[in-house]
Each structure stands twice: as structure tokens, then as C-alpha cells.
């Protein structure tokens, strides 16, 4: 298959829907052999994407999944730690188990997956690239999803540390999405009317799309980014205007 990622073996965690699905699709269009992992197979057709069942919060399952992938594909070139998210929760009353689960999925799991990938990549002549999907929630206050914001802030710092430890064979970078329209938009942003109001607050005038994030991921995975490691590419359409500007002018 032709394309700038022809022959590349790519794993996208949480790649069966949402942003991860968009990333997986983009790599597939670029010629890569793309694996997606999840706890359960999705309802929608996977097409050419290859499904690996795994709960990435469990280190044994991560190891087993990577073994199956390498056994079939011969190696791994790009890993995108995309699986993550959180329902809204009041930080004052959130249970310990809930908070631990959010941190396990959004911070510990990317570390486990990265470790398993790095072990393979260090032995490959061309090494590999790991891209961690962070969030604007990790860069500014994240009220209503506090543990999630903390985990994402931690993931950004982890990206920088691993980029130093695992260089030069493995490059690690972060992509920080802003507000993205996915199947979960109703939960995060409310009704279609509410989503439209939210979109109007973004300087770009719209919510982001999975394809917007995918483009950033593909760049960071590409040969053009060979001197880019420990970086954070923020894809948020200009970000959030300071609230006081509208309050002061109204």
C-alpha cells in the first residue's frame, strides 16, 4: 500500500471511536497497518483496522497485547496513547475508587503502554515514535473533571521525562486537543444548541474534529518531525478567550 506511512505499524489505544478513530483512519489512509485496542469490539465496522482486545489499565493485558501485535506485525513503529476521558464528577464528593480509576486510565495506562512499546522500539533499527493525547484540561483549571485534568497534566510532564530517558531511539511528544466534536459531545457540551454556543466561544468559530487532531499526530509521527521530541502541539483553534474580556465589555 502506498502513502507516507506505507509499511508502518501503528497502535492507537481507544482507537475504536472518537478522536482515536479519526487518528486510526488517518494513518490507514496514509498506508499504515493500524491496530486499535479497546476493552470491547465496537459496533461500527472496523474496516481495515485490526482490533486487539485489552484493558490497558492492567499491566499483564498490556504486555500480552503488545506480544500479540508484535507476533503478527513483526514490530511497532508508532504508538498513540489516545484512550482516556472522564465523566463529570464533583471533586468534593468523588469516591476514592472513581478518582483512582480516572488516573489509572488517563495517566498510568499511557505509561504502561509506552513501556511495552519502548521495549520493542529500542531493539528496532529505526526506533519509534510515541504520541500522547493530552488535553487543554491539563493546562488550565478543569473544574468538574479535576482528577482528569490532573492526570492529563501529569501525562504532559511524563511525555517530557520519557522523551529524555528514551532518546535517541524513541521520540515522545504530546498533542493537546481543545474542544473536539465526538460521540461524547452531548455529555460534555450539552444539547446541539449548547454545543453551538460553545463553538462560538472558540476563536476558530467551531469545535475541533478528530481529523484536526489526526493531522497533528501524523506530523509528529513522521520523518519531518525527527528533531521534535518532548514537545506539545496544541490544537485548540486559538483556545479560550479570557472570560473577563466579555464580562468587562458587556
Amino acid at each position: 500500500m502506498s502513502g507516507s506511512f506505507a509499511g508502518a505499524r501503528v497502535l492507537v489505544t481507544g482507537g475504536t471511536r472518537g478522536i482515536g478513530r479519526g487518528i486510526a483512519h488517518a494513518f490507514e489512509q496514509a498506508g499504515a497497518t493500524v491496530y486499535v485496542c479497546g476493552r470491547k469490539p465496537p459496533e461500527e465496522s472496523l474496516g481495515a483496522l485490526r482490533f486487539l482486545q485489552s484493558d490497558i489499565r492492567d499491566a499483564d493485558q498490556v504486555t500480552a497485547m503488545m506480544e500479540r501485535l508484535v507476533s503478527e506485525a513483526g514490530g511497532i513503529d508508532v504508538v498513540v496513547n489516545n484512550a482516556g476521558g472522564s465523566p463529570p464528577a464533583d471533586a468534593a464528593t468523588a469516591s476514592a475508587r472513581f478518582s483512582a480509576a480516572i488516573i489509572a486510565l488517563n495517566l498510568t495506562a499511557p505509561l504502561l503502554v509506552s513501556q511495552a512499546a519502548n521495549a520493542v522500539m529500542q531493539k528496532q533499527e529505526r526506533g519509534g515514535a510515541i504520541i500522547n493525547i493530552c488535553s487543554v484540561s491539563g493546562l488550565r483549571p478543569s473544574p468538574g473533571t479535576a482528577a482528569y485534568g490532573a492526570a492529563k497534566a501529569g501525562l504532559l510532564n511524563l511525555t517530557q521525562s520519557l522523551a529524555v530517558e528514551w532518546a535517541p531511539k524513541v521520540r515522545l511528544n504530546a498533542v493537546t486537543p481543545g474542544l473536539i466534536a465526538t460521540e461524547l459531545s452531548d455529555m460534555h457540551y450539552g444539547s446541539p444548541e449548547a454545543q453551538a454556543r460553545v463553538a462560538a466561544t472558540v476563536p476558530a468559530g467551531r469545535l475541533g474534529l478528530p481529523a484536526d487532531i489526526a493531522a497533528a499526530v501524523l506530523f509528529l509521527a513522521s520523518a519531518e518531525a525527527s528533531y521534535v521530541s518532548g514537545a506539545n502541539l496544541v490544537v485548540h483553534g486559538g483556545g479560550e478567550k479570557p472570560a473577563f474580556l466579555d464580562a468587562a465589555s458587556s
Binding site: K40, P41, R50, L52, Q53, M65, R68, L69, S71, E72
Partner: peptide, 28 residues
């Protein structure tokens, strides 16, 4: 439930091998 699709030709030696391989890769 849980399911994935496969479109390999089962009467083809390599195709059926891919089918079996896909089951083991996907579900271990």
C-alpha cells in the same frame, strides 16, 4: 455482545490462516 468481522476466503490456505491469526490477535 462481542464480535469482530473477517472477510477472508476460508478455502484459501493463507486466508484461513489469517482468519485464525486474527482471532488470536484480537482476543488472545
Amino acid at each position: 455482545g462481542q464480535a469482530i468481522a473477517n472477510a477472508d476466503d476460508i478455502a484459501d490456505w493463507a486466508g484461513s490462516e489469517r482468519l485464525v491469526q486474527q482471532a488470536i490477535s484480537a482476543f488472545g
